[in-house]
């Protein structure tokens, strides 16, 4: 039997204790961060949603370019979320539709409808980068991102435009499934919506590459809804403003609205426009 001296034992306890003192706050921040991220993910957002709005591409010294659109979302539960975006202007993209079926297991199916060809084309849903219709949003920004795909950490509390928020850092667990190396979100406690998100490019932790800012939140049918927001490319100053003019929740959108049939026939979806 080996003997353990009292001194060694004390030293062991001391090292363990110091280690715990160092690690414990970090662990606490991570637990709180994950809890907050889960609350943000689980926040009430209706069983379905329809919006009427516009996306405005703004650049210093140039006329803004506007994309008008309707969006539809159906939350089937168990992480199964279906969405349809239909553009109505400008005329060169009018009628174009994007159908996305996000499945509970994290996989997705995505099709784009091209009215000029009267054809829908399957596109890779795993695509994260690439500008969405020329905006400052990339495809990843439109996708349902599960909580467990990132490591979350609560960084503290700050105010955004006078509003108290909790600052949440999210880093992809698997760097290959995100175009961002890190995201920092300022989460509004009451609505559980981020009022600002700074997006950092991979390996570029010094300055954010892109920033999302919420300008207006409204309670629509009791659900906090982003009505006016913008995404700014901090490198170029190019900005995409997204404004919702009308939002309707829980109008019992049919599943058939999220099918290739409806994607290829805009008239089928017009009855559900808000």
């Amino acid at each position: 039997m080996c003997k353990v001296s009292t001194r060694s034992l004390l030293l062991g306890f001391l090292i363990c204790g110091l280690g715990l003192l160092t690690v414990a706050p970090v662990l606490a921040d991570e637990v709180a961060g994950k809890r907050l991220a889960q609350r943000v993910y689980d926040r009430p957002d209706g069983d379905d949603m329809s919006t009427r709005g516009a996306m405005v591409l703004e650049e210093q010294g140039r006329a803004p370019r506007t994309r008008q659109m309707f969006t539809y979302r159906l939350d089937k539960g168990y992480g199964e979320v279906w969405s349809l975006i239909r553009f109505t202007a400008p005329s060169d993209i009018a009628g174009t539709g994007l159908l996305t079926l996000d499945h509970a297991d994290g996989t997705s199916d995505q099709w784009v409808y091209l009215p000029a060809l009267d054809r829908s084309r399957r596109i890779p849903a795993a695509r994260k980068g690439g500008r969405f219709v020329g905006s400052d949003l990339v495809f990843e920004d439109l996708q349902d991102r599960k909580v467990e795909m990132d490591r979350h950490r609560l960084l503290g509390q700050e105010t955004v435009s006078g509003v108290p928020t909790q600052v949440l850092e999210s880093i992809p667990v698997d760097a290959s499934n995100s175009t961002y190396g890190r995201r920092v979100s300022w989460v509004h406690e009451q609505s559980l919506l981020p009022l600002r998100i700074d997006f950092y490019a991979p390996g570029r932790d010094d300055n954010p590459a892109k920033r999302m800012e919420v300008h207006r939140l409204e309670q629509v049918q009791g659900i906090w809804t982003v009505m006016d927001s913008s995404v700014t490319d901090l490198g170029t100053g190019h900005r995409t403003r997204i404004v919702m003019e009308a939002v309707v929740y829980d109008q019992r959108l049919p599943e058939s609205l999220f099918s290739s049939q409806a994607l290829e026939d805009p008239a089928r979806e017009s009855a559900h426009r808000p």
């Binding site: 009427r52 109505t88 435009s161 300008h215 939140l217 309670q219 404004v243 808000p274």
Partner: peptide
């Protein structure tokens, strides 16, 4: 309703038809 920061200028662009 929550408006953050200085009020953004009202949209001057057309919205899609209902």
């Amino acid at each position: 309703v929550l408006v953050l920061g200085s009020a953004q200028p009202s949209p001057t662009f057309a919205m899609p038809a209902t």
